[in-house]
Design a protein around this nucleic acid. Structure first.
Lengths: 246, 246
DNA sequence: AATTAATGTGTTAGTTTTACACATTAATTC
DNA sequence: GAATTAATGTGTAAAACTAACACATTAATT
């Protein structure tokens, strides 16, 4: 920090007032959050959608969202929506991108901060009774309301990337899972097939799986071992440097 | 998309009106963009900062930003700031994160969408005459105004990650550069030392560098060859799949 | 008891990364 | 202008990682 201070008090006051008057004037920009809530069920990646309640998008599905309250942090707004719609707290939530095209919302200028959330569908079962709320297989997610298709695509791509570099996937699985479950999850999210033996080797070599010495129950084949993910160990040993690769 | 349509027109109208009234009411959230503008000069990574014009942050440095105009896209607002402050168009610009803590701005509720920009410092030279605008060596960037330190840290980390996976760095260099320039850039951004021979091998094996058959001029040692980055080839051949690694 | 379909474990060849050494070139020094 | 210096430019070998592939084991089912 070098250089002299040429502070102009008039300028200070003006700019503060300018901002304040903007904040208080009408013709303002509204702010919302939208959540792309992913689940994993029957070996398929799902997303939770609700019917649009706008005439313009009659019959279309849309993401779960709401306006941000004036005294509410962005993350808090996203958590509120999640709690409201799934009954769940303490879920994985990550801000992804903010969409603000001038004409993206028919009701006026609404900028939306979008979040990606991963939940364990076993845990909720709750507010899904709501007739307008449904889990959609992500391969069937097309033609959403507003710009929600674009938002969904962005969040899905982000998930595909993040799951390769961070242990997010476990948020979609039960605490105890088999390696087959884990591979099915990766194959569903990344839309690819992987070699079972190499997949297994990869995860064992990372050494973040805890063998809890239990087996799958009620499976119509030889039961596999169950594991938990060792978050503590991961936090200590996670890699910092990767290298140039593009 | 299955399920019958139980559209409730009253509900539709209500919710639309609710949003519209929110948009038009006062006590609204203001929206700004802030740009973290990186440059590379004398083998050091730099960031362009301006003196805060708020009394509360007298003497502190802050990022370049402004309120988003009611009929302006977010990206357009970021480009406007860049053009205004550096005179440059057609620069690398990427949205990074949106910060919206309730008390982050002393003038009221201001949510800010932050962008990372990479420019070639050779190209501008222009509006830098402004006494209040300075390039700061990033190692000396501490204690910025508002929550700008957090924003800067986030954008810098993002840059560190992105430069390993995408050819962003070339935006900070002249069109023609030596491999030494390129390595210095990577070492500055990633704050690390690399083996010169392996770095060289890595980039040659990617095969995205065009040997333009020119040499460095006016260097006080054996001049190195100059290269350009082959964006066309990169766009065709860039890798999609990487693999699980964390 | 035989069959089936999954889990669980190696092995090998190929590729990539890392560590490290020496020859070459042009500016600088004497 | 010859010797010195400090950079560029190239190569090699060990180690680590990835990808492709085969067989034994287990438990449910027939």
């Amino acid at each position: 920090m070098s250089g002299e201070l040429n502070t102009d008090k008039v300028k200070n006051v003006k700019s503060l007032l300018a901002i304040q008057s903007e904040v208080e004037s009408s013709n303002k920009i509204a702010l919302s959050v939208d959540c792309v809530i992913f689940g994993f069920d029957e070996n398929k990646l799902k997303v939770l959608l609700i019917r649009s309640d706008l005439k313009k998008y009659l019959g279309k599905w849309s993401l779960l969202g709401d306006l941000v309250r004036p005294s509410e942090d962005l993350d808090a707004a996203a958590y509120r929506i999640l709690k409201q719609r799934t009954g769940l707290s303490d879920v994985y939530l990550e801000q992804v991108h903010t969409f603000g095209s001038v004409n993206r919302h028919p009701a006026g200028r609404v900028v939306t901060v979008t979040y990606c959330s991963l939940i364990n569908v076993q845990h909720h079962k709750l507010n899904i009774l709501d007739n307008e709320l449904h889990w959609h297989d992500i391969v069937n997610v097309t033609d959403l309301a507003f710009d929600h298709q674009q938002i969904f695509d962005t969040c899905y791509k982000r998930l595909q990337k993040r799951i390769q570099e961070h242990p997010l996937g476990f948020n979609l699985l039960p605490k105890k899972f088999s390696l087959r479950d884990l591979q099915n999850l990766y194959e569903a999210i990344l839309d690819t097939k992987m070699d079972r033996r190499n997949f297994r080797k990869k995860f064992f070599s990372m050494d973040f799986l805890i063998d809890i010495d239990e087996m799958e129950q009620d499976v119509p084949h030889r039961p596999g071992k169950l594991y938990k993910f060792n978050y503590e160990k991961y936090e200590k040993k996670k890699k910092k440097w990767v290298g140039i690769d593009f």
